[in-house]
């Protein structure tokens, strides 16, 4: 091991808690990419929960720590922790995969959802936020994800925007409404432990 003569620079207690939550949230989003539900309309296109994790990160951790958590998820995937769909990993996913736009959009979407729900960067009690605002925030997040994802696909695959949307997004869009409804259901449950 390398020796260091610097004095120990302790991490502040509150920040330790936030780091632990951000890291566990990133690991949970990664765990969500392994959980797929059969799609009732098209059985060969499974529904995964990563986007649910992105929305929840923005809502529960706020815009700053939510974005940090999802950025951690991407960074961990880039260096080889198997966090992307199907347990894959590698920097190639962020610089050469056709789905790179979707991955890069996740931290932005978490930030947008967090900013709208908390009406700024200061954390508010998300349990007191009305359903219309939550739905509006998640619709905005979904728009960010599909806009960046489609543009990313078009650029990296040398395709037009309409064709990119058809190939990369069309089959998944109807289930975003189910995911948004599921997130509202999660936030309204009494059994949720995090405040």
């Amino acid at each position: 091991m390398a020796t260091s003569t610097d004095s120990v620079d302790l991490v502040d207690g509150e920040i330790v808690g936030n780091i632990a939550r951000a890291a566990l949230f990133a690991a949970l989003v990664a765990g969500f990419s392994y959980v797929s539900f059969p799609n009732p309309l098209a059985p060969n296109i499974p529904v995964t929960l990563q986007v649910v994790g992105v929305f929840l990160a923005g809502i529960m951790l706020g815009p700053l720590w939510g974005t940090s958590a999802i950025s951690l998820y991407l960074a961990a995937g880039a260096i080889g922790v198997p966090v992307f769909s199907g347990g894959s990993a590698g920097l190639g996913y962020l610089i050469g995969s056709p789905t790179l736009g979707y991955l890069w959009s996740y931290p932005v979407a978490a930030g947008v959802v967090g900013l709208i729900v908390h009406r700024g960067t200061d954390l508010q009690d998300y349990t007191a936020v009305g359903v219309p605002l939550l739905v509006g925030a998640m619709v905005a997040g979904t728009l960010v994800i599909y806009a960046m994802g489609t543009v990313g696909f078009a650029v990296i695959q040398d395709l037009g925007l309409v064709e990119s949307f058809t190939v990369s997004a069309l089959a998944f869009v109807p289930f975003e409404a189910v995911k948004i409804a599921a997130v509202i259901g999660i936030l309204r449950r009494d059994s949720i432990a995090a405040v």
């Binding site: 949230f25 599921a182 999660i186 432990a193 995090a194």
Partner: peptide
Amino acid sequence: LRERIATVATAGLNRAFRRADRL
């Protein structure tokens, strides 16, 4: 589907937050 997602994600979140507090 909506209920399944909510059930699995809620249980997952609770476990993750409990682990985060202990960590």
